[in-house]
Amino acid sequence: MILTELRATADEFARATDWQPKPEGLCRGEVCVPAPGALSPDGMIDVAIAAQRLGMPLVHDTDHGVWALGSATLSGKSLSTAVAADPELKTFNGDSFKLSSLRGKKVILVAWSSY
């Protein structure tokens, strides 16, 4: 997630990280992490607090004034829950596609590349 300030709407944060703000805290699947102070009354996420709670490194490019938010390290593994992430991906036609649209089917998600 690229940021020019350490605030993001809850929707932006959820789209980029798949962590959703809920009354229990920041949640993915069955995992919820208490994050007091991370969600403002105006619906904005304090990204520094959220990052600290989720073990996400914040990397700052001081020359250009941008940050990038790394992935969570809560479990010490690439997955902290078995609930599949649901990022917004694109088809080759540019249409949005969510894996959740395939609920009810078994999915083999395969990574490939042109290189």
């Binding site: 992935s71 609930v83 990022p87 999915v107 990574a111």
Partner: peptide, 23 residues
């Protein structure tokens, strides 16, 4: 982004997801 969310680090790699969206 699927590198960070699923753990892909090479190609080809795959993850299996069941009917309820659980890996």
């Amino acid at each position: 982004i699927t590198n960070s969310l699923f753990g892909f680090t090479n190609i080809p790699m795959a993850a299996w997801i069941d009917e309820d969206g659980v890996l």
